[in-house]
Nucleic acid binder design. Structure first.
Length: 956
RNA sequence: GGGCCGCUAGCUCAACUGGCAGAGCGCCGUGCUGAUAACGCGGAGGUAGGUGGUUCGAGUCCACCGCGGCCCA
């Protein structure tokens, strides 16, 4: 027997009940046990960073992950779902810095200490993971949270080390430079975000034009040509001039040689206006004519012992908007500069230290801070006749957002993985991956791979996987370690800073002391290593790793293209020569109803708990599955969610309560023999045909990693079920005799609801299970097989029914135009088109409330003549309607019998007498008679312009 | 500056390979209703972001531009 169901449902409350049941019954665990030994469907959890409370956009990816995990489980696969937590990285550090009200290297190292700082990071992570588990369970994201992988464990870290050491063995790791905005006081590089915090406008800086004297002994015929000739270059950072190694010109720009006094100057034609005098043009050349010319170094400090420097090169970033069209290049103090010198093979070395002061060997300016040195350098060049002119310019310049020190661009040590060497392999492995939506493969991801640069994986931070590279103080020998055993440490020892920094090794080459480089790993390396690191591979878990690599399916939002999607691809390509995922759903972003990104400062952030409490998590999931194409943004607001509940959840729930209400009254027993399909009412056969099609397309869609089309079809089906099948079948459930037609109706609706629950289980796990359990003796839908292979297709019925519904539409339109309410029966209607089968035509007649339905007319033609006979029938229906209304007002139950009295005259009385049987039957009136009797709860009202009093009471 | 995605009714979104521009919400009118906080019918509401091009025919294909989003530089 089915439990009574309240029509007024509170979905959030329902969901909490289900959470309790799942916990008590271990439903998730059971769903896994059910499929033990079955083929695996391999899912990888992209670990969220535990640096804050989960937000609404986190529901999105988790909903999709859960959808396919549940679907494949119901399809018979064993779907391990190991949770994971990304525990390292700058976001965690920043969260802790905020709590401590500190910021930056200086405070961390000198006030807090790395040991305590990292301990606080660890605590912070543990705290947030609790929030994440609660959140995930609230939205029914079934994962194994007890056996989650944590990127901070010694096992995990050692796997990561192993991965790096394998790349080391392949000679894919090298040390280089990285130019970044740098604060010399804080001794720290700034992130892009930090950089943007500190720009100031109208900052005065020197603007100097420098003569670079061309060497007289140029190779070949060019020699005499350049006597007394200088190339004019411009800079606003004179302190970079001692580090000058090259001048860059644009190959295709016109350069002019002008005579000024007894010397010659070369600069770009569009910038002749910077000259002090009216230009006296001597010669015009192209930039590429200048390339290769040697010039006299301004200073001896950056003249290399080996290799060639101080000559003219071509570059693609030369501007003719300002300066002279010649770019002074100092390799280590500009992003473009460094790239150019690396491309051209120009040697370079630092002239400035990490403290922002000139190094000792730059003897003229040694120990001076670069900004202090600027005027001295200008003076020095002026004295030596190398300064053409010096001015002051006002421009926008970045300052440290913490301490307001002017930032400089500075090349820091950085470690790289030579991904460019394996670029073609990366592209091939990406090409073999199924992207949803497809355009990401060649678009966003493909473009990113085409423009691949080596992966800079070192971070000058604290809370991260320490980079396992040790360098000999004596001979510079380098070594990459792959396990704690190699360091003489136990397996379970904490490998984080600062402890790891104290570990020294003995150099095998010279016997000297080897120390670890101070940097930690980019967190993307951590998460990209999860396919094997979650198993502790290769020290352990070898077998399980091999069984679970690569993944069949992963899903995240598209900001992961350069993040996790990339790091997984790179690491597995370099180590295992294939991608670690076969199918990937790349989701759009959650934005506010205006399309703006949610942010606290805009105040448009949706609190997930607010949504859960008001609409339920199923509703939020369903919204994400149905609202827009995968890859597009989700305009999310309370209005759209309210609509989701009203348009889909409530109608579905009403279908369910309708069934339960009458099934209880009739003691419907689902185990009774089924009425053969061919003997069922045409509405049943129509519904089951529709259901068959639905099952097929939902299976097909989900198999192709498409969620939206299946979900939208389910939505349309529920509309058909509610507003056509049940609407047109109601009387079959109400009628008093229990014949086979009634049994067929119950069986059809029952099977449909159960199947629908199966189809919906992966999408809305709470709602589907709530309904299914009541229909199935408390068995969980999540332990069933996914619906498939129904065989009740009947295209002819579907076509005919579609035509019938069009006929109804036309007929109701005609009624409306004629101002004839549907309650008033009419003699007939004639419609265009071919006749419909009788059983379907009957439905149309009933819906239109006409006696006859004919086809073949040229247009819709309604017989509008209302005979007295029809009028009385219409009045009878009015009376029925009035009695039903009264029943409802008196709070009577649908099955309650009543006695009915009336007081009226004229046509109404005749209608009541003529159609007494009909009225009694419709309203469950045991007696129906005239007279205002005592004890009858009555009401005076108007029906079709006539007075009537109707009174009723519950029949004893 | 570059890449990708989007731009269709007031709002949210559809329309297989080019073939009569649609649904839901909201609004107005009206009807139906003992499952329905629901539903039906009718109405108002569209130069499809803009400009060109290809085609018998373009929301759909091509080019350029604009706006929004994400990412890279």
């Amino acid at each position: 027997m089915f439990e009574r169901v309240d029509q007024k449902v509170n979905f959030p409350e329902l969901e909490k009940q289900l959470m309790g049941k799942w916990k008590d019954e271990n439903t998730f665990q059971k769903s896994l046990e059910l499929r033990e030994g079955k083929p695996r469907f391999i899912f990888y959890e992209g670990p969220p960073t535990a640096n804050g409370k989960p937000a609404t956009h986190h529901i999105l990816a988790r909903a999709f992950k859960d959808l396919f995990g549940r679907y494949k489980t119901m399809k018979g696969f064993y779907v391990e779902r190991k949770a994971g937590w990304d525990t390292h990285g700058l976001p965690v550090e920043i969260e802790v810095e905020k709590k401590l009200n500190i910021s930056g290297k200086f405070e961390i190292e000198n006030e807090i200490g790395i040991e305590r700082f990292n301990e606080l990071c660890r605590q912070s992570v543990y705290q947030y993971v609790e929030d994440w588990v609660a959140f995930s369970e609230r939205m029914a994201f079934w994962q194994d949270y007890e056996h989650a992988y944590w990127t901070l464990t010694p096992d995990y870290i050692q796997s990561v080390w192993w991965a790096l050491s394998e790349m080391w063995k392949q000679d894919l790791i090298y040390k280089g430079f990285r130019v970044a905005p740098y604060c010399s006081r804080c001794a720290t590089p700034l992130s892009n975000h930090e950089l943007h915090l500190g720009y100031q406008d109208n900052v005065p800086d020197p603007s100097v034009y420098i003569r670079f004297r061309l060497k007289k002994d140029q190779p070949g015929a060019r020699r005499a040509h350049f006597d007394k000739t200088s190339i004019l270059a411009w800079t606003t950072t004179p302190w970079t001039l001692p580090g000058n190694v090259a001048l860059a010109v644009d190959n295709d720009v016109d350069y002019i040689k002008v005579k000024e006094g007894d010397e010659f100057l070369i600069l770009a034609e569009p910038l002749l206006s910077v000259l002090k005098e009216e230009p006296h043009v001597v010669e015009r050349v192209k930039g590429h004519d200048l390339v290769g010319l040697d010039y006299e170094p301004l200073y001896p400090y950056s003249v290399p012992e080996q290799g060639r420097a101080q000559y003219v090169v071509d570059a693609d970033f030369v501007s003719t908007e300002e300066g002279t069209g010649v770019v002074h290049t100092s390799a280590l103090y500009g992003v473009d500069d460094l790239r150019l010198c690396q491309e051209k093979g120009i040697p370079f070395k630092h002239t400035v230290g990490l403290d922002g002061k000139f190094l000792p060997y730059v003897d003229k300016f040694a120990g001076l801070h670069v900004k202090e040195a600027d005027p001295l350098i200008i003076d020095d060049l002026r004295e030596r006749g190398l300064l053409y002119k010096a001015e002051t310019t006002l421009h926008t310049y970045p300052f440290c957002w913490r301490c307001s020190t002017p930032l400089i661009y500075y090349a820091l040590d950085a470690w790289y993985i030579r991904t460019t060497e394996r670029k073609e392999e990366l592209i091939a492995n990406n090409a073999a991956t199924n992207w949803v939506p497809a355009h990401i493969k060649t678009g966003r991801m493909g473009d990113w791979l085409q423009n691949n640069v080596d992966w800079q994986f070192s971070r000058s931070r604290y809370w991260g996987t320490p980079i396992p590279i040790w360098i000999c103080e004596g001979c510079d020998e380098k070594r990459c370690v792959s396990s704690s055993a190699e360091l003489g440490l136990k397996d379970d020892v904490d490998l984080h800073r600062p402890y790891i920094d104290e570990i020294t090794l003995k150099c095998e080459k010279c016997g000297g002391v080897m120390r670890r480089i101070p940097e930690v790993l980019d967190v993307w390396f951590d998460s990209g290593a999860m396919p094997f690191a979650q198993r502790g591979y290769p020290r352990q878990g070898k077998e399980i790793f091999e069984q679970t690599f690569p993944a069949d399916f992963i899903s995240e939002a598209l900001d992961q293209t350069r993040g996790w999607f990339y790091s997984l691809l790179v690491i597995s390509t370099l180590l295992f020569k294939q991608n670690s995922y076969r199918n990937v759903i790349c989701l759009g972003l959650v934005v506010d109803p205006k399309g703006k990104k949610a942010s606290k400062s805009r105040g448009n952030v949706l609190d997930p708990n607010f949504l859960f409490d008001n609409f339920g998590s199923d509703a939020v999931r369903w919204f994400f599955f149905t609202s827009t194409q995968v890859g597009e943004n989700y305009r999310t607001g309370t209005d759209t969610l309210r609509e989701t509940v009203q348009q889909f959840f409530i109608p579905l729930w009403n279908c369910y309560t309708f069934f339960v209400t009458y099934a209880r009254l009739d003691n419907f027993d689902p185990d009774r023999p089924a009425v053969p399909l061919e003997e069922r009412h045409v509405l049943d056969r129509w519904l089951l045909s529709r259901l068959t099609g639905l099952v097929t397309s939902v299976n097909g869609g989900l198999d192709a990693y498409d969620a939206i089309e299946p979900a939208r079809r389910i939505q349309r089906f529920v509309d058909d079920l509610s507003n056509w099948y049940i609407r047109r079948s109601r009387r079959r459930f109400w009628k008093s005799q229990s014949d086979s037609d009634k049994a067929a109706a119950y069986q059809t609706l029952y099977e449909t609801l159960r199947t629908l629950c199966g189809l919906m289980a992966p999408f809305t796990p709470f709602l589907a299970d709530a309904i299914y359990r009541n229909l199935s003796d408390e068995r969980s839908v999540h332990l069933t097989d996914f619906p498939s292979g129904l065989a009740a297709e009947d295209p002819a019925i579907e076509v005919a029914m579609a035509r019938a519904r069009q006929a109804v539409e036309a007929g109701l339109g005609a009624r409306d135009a004629a101002r004839l309410k549907v309650r008033q029966p009419l003699a007939g209607i004639a419609l265009p088109g071919e006749p419909l089968p009788e059983d379907i035509a009957a439905i149309v007649r009933e819906e239109l409330n006409v006696k006859t339905l004919t086809f073949g007319a040229s247009e819709v033609k309604l017989d509008t003549v209302i005979t007295e006979e029809l009028k009385l029938e219409g009045l009878a229906r009015e009376v029925v309607r009035a009695i039903q209304d009264r029943r409802k007002k008196l709070g009577l139950n649908v099955e309650d019998r009543i006695d009915t009295r009336y007081d009226a005259d004229g046509l109404l009385v005749r209608a009541l007498q003529r159609h007494a049987d009909y009225i009694r039957n419709e309203t469950l009136s045991v007696t129906l008679g005239p007279g205002r009797e005592a004890g009858f709860d009555g009401e005076q009202m108007m029906l079709e312009g006539e007075q009537i009093w109707i009174g009723l009471k519950r029949s004893s």
